[in-house]
Design a protein around this nucleic acid. Structure first.
Length: 345
DNA sequence: AAGACGATCAACCGCGCACAG
DNA sequence: CCTGTGCGCGGTTGATCGTCT
C-alpha cells in the first residue's frame, strides 16, 4: 500500500511558475505567513499548485532574503569544506550560507564546483589511459571504472578522493606514504590505531576566521548544545570516533570541535589552490605535479574494493539519519569529529 | 545555418521523520 | 502504541540556453 499523494496530481498545475502565480504566493505569505500548512495554502490563495510546490517556490525563489547570482570564493570554500566533512547535507551547508538555498548549493556543486575539483583530474587520467590503451572508458577487462557500479556512492567516493588528495598535500607522511593507513590492512591489523588523535598545537593549521559561518565562538548556548551533542555519543560512535584507546590526547568536545574548525580552515587554503589555481605556500603545486598526484587515484580505483570499508563508513555515517535540518547541526559536529580525526592523522 | 551536444537550474519525486490525534 | 498527515530533505528530471561541429 503506497502513501497517499499530497494532492490531486490531475488538478494541479506543474512546470514553471508564472509571474502572476509568484506575486499571488508572495503577497499572501508576506501578509499572512504560511499558516503552518503548506498543503492548504494553495487553495486559500486560489492557486492550482501542489502545496509542496508552493513551499519550494517560496523557499528557493520568492523569499526576500534569497541571494541570487554567482557564488563567491569564500562560499566555494565553505561548500567544499562542509561537503568533505558531512557530504551532501545540502540543508546544513545552506544554513552556513545566508541567502543561499540547499537547491542552489546542490545545483552549484553538481554542475560547477565538482567539475572544478574533479573534472580535470578525471579527464586527464582517463585521456592518458585511453591514449595509451586506445580503448573505451571501460578497462581492458571490460569492467566499468565507475565506482557507482560497484556500490560506492558518488558522494562517498568524491569525498574520499578529495580527502586523499588534500591529505597528500597537507601531510606527506600520511596515508599514501604510511602503510599503516592503507585500507587493505584494515582487516589484517585489527588493533592498529588508524585514527590517532594528536595534540592541537601540533596540527599547525591556519587561524580560522572568526567571521566564518561555522564559528561558534562567543555563542555559549551553541557551545553547550554541541558539547552535549558530542558527549552524547553512543559507545559505538565513540569507539569509531576515538578508535578504542588511541594514545593521543583525547580531546573533550570543544577541543575536538576546535580541531575540526582548524582542520577545515586548513582545507580552505588547499581548496583555494585547487579551485582557483593559486599558490599558497607549501601547498602550491603545478599542473604536472597535480597530474602526478592524480595518478594515485587510478591505483586507488583499482583497489577500491579493499577500501570500501572506509568509504562505506562515510556512507553509514552520512545516511544514518535522513532527518537533517538547520537545528540538527550539532549532530553534524559529531561527523566532523569522526572525519577530522581521520584527517588529522 | 542548423543540428547535436553539453551546461545550468527550476521543479518534481519519493522517502523518512516528527507529531498530533 | 498506532496511524495518518505534513514537512523537509536529497536525488533526479526536464526545459532552456549556449556552444560546438
Amino acid at each position: 500500500m503506497g502513501r497517499a499523494p499530497c494532492c490531486d496530481k490531475t488538478n494541479v498545475k506543474r512546470g514553471p511558475w508564472s509571474p502572476e502565480e509568484d506575486s499571488k504566493l508572495k503577497a499572501y505569505i508576506e501578509q499572512h505567513g504560511t499558516g503552518g500548512n503548506w498543503i492548504a495554502l494553495p487553495q486559500k490563495i486560489g492557486l492550482k499548485r501542489c502545496g509542496k510546490s508552493c513551499r519550494l517556490r517560496w523557499l528557493n525563489y520568492l523569499r526576500p532574503d534569497i541571494k541570487h547570482g554567482g557564488f563567491s570564493e569564500e562560499e566555494d570554500n565553505i561548500i567544499c569544506n562542509l561537503y568533505i566533512s558531512i557530504g551532501s547535507r545540502w540543508s546544513i551547508i545552506a544554513a552556513q550560507l545566508p541567502g543561499r538555498t540547499d537547491n542552489d548549493i546542490k545545483n552549484y556543486w553538481n554542475t560547477r564546483l565538482k567539475k572544478k575539483l574533479f573534472g580535470r583530474r578525471k579527464e586527464s587520467s582517463q585521456a592518458r589511459r585511453l591514449s595509451s590503451l586506445n580503448q573505451d572508458p571501460k578497462d581492458a577487462n571490460g569492467v566499468d571504472d565507475n565506482p557507482n557500479s560497484q556500490g560506492l556512492s558518488n558522494s562517498a567516493f568524491e569525498r574520499l578522493q578529495l580527502h586523499m588528495h588534500l591529505q597528500s598535500l597537507q601531510n606527506p607522511f600520511s596515508f599514501f606514504n604510511n602503510p599503516l593507513l592503507w585500507p587493505r590492512l584494515h582487516t589484517q591489523m585489527p588493533q592498529v590505531s588508524q585514527t590517532q588523535t594528536i595534540p592541537l598545537q601540533k596540527v599547525g593549521f591556519h587561524e580560522f576566521p572568526s567571521s566564518d559561518p561555522i564559528s561558534i565562538e562567543g555563542d555559549k548556548s551553541k557551545q553547550d548544545e554541541i558539547e552535549n551533542s558530542i558527549s552524547g555519543f553512543s559507545p559505538l560512535e565513540s569507539s569509531i570516533a576515538f578508535n578504542n584507546g588511541s594514545e593521543g590526547i583525547q580531546p573533550n568536545g570543544m577541543e575536538q570541535l576546535n580541531m575540526n574548525v582548524q582542520s577545515l580552515s586548513g582545507l580552505q587554503t588547499e581548496l583555494s589552490d585547487l579551485i582557483y589555481g593559486k599558490n599558497s605556500g607549501s601547498a602550491a603545486i603545478n599542473e604536472d605535479q597535480m597530474t602526478d598526484q592524480f595518478d594515485c587515484f587510478e591505483e586507488i580505483d583499482a583497489s577500491k574494493d579493499s577500501m570500501s570499508w572506509w568509504a562505506n563508513d562515510f556512507d553509514t555515517k552520512s545516511s544514518s539519519s535522513n532527518s537533517w535540518d538547520s537545528t540538527s547541526v550539532p549532530q553534524t559536529e559529531g561527523m566532523f569529529q569522526d572525519y577530522v580525526l581521520r584527517y588529522d592523522l
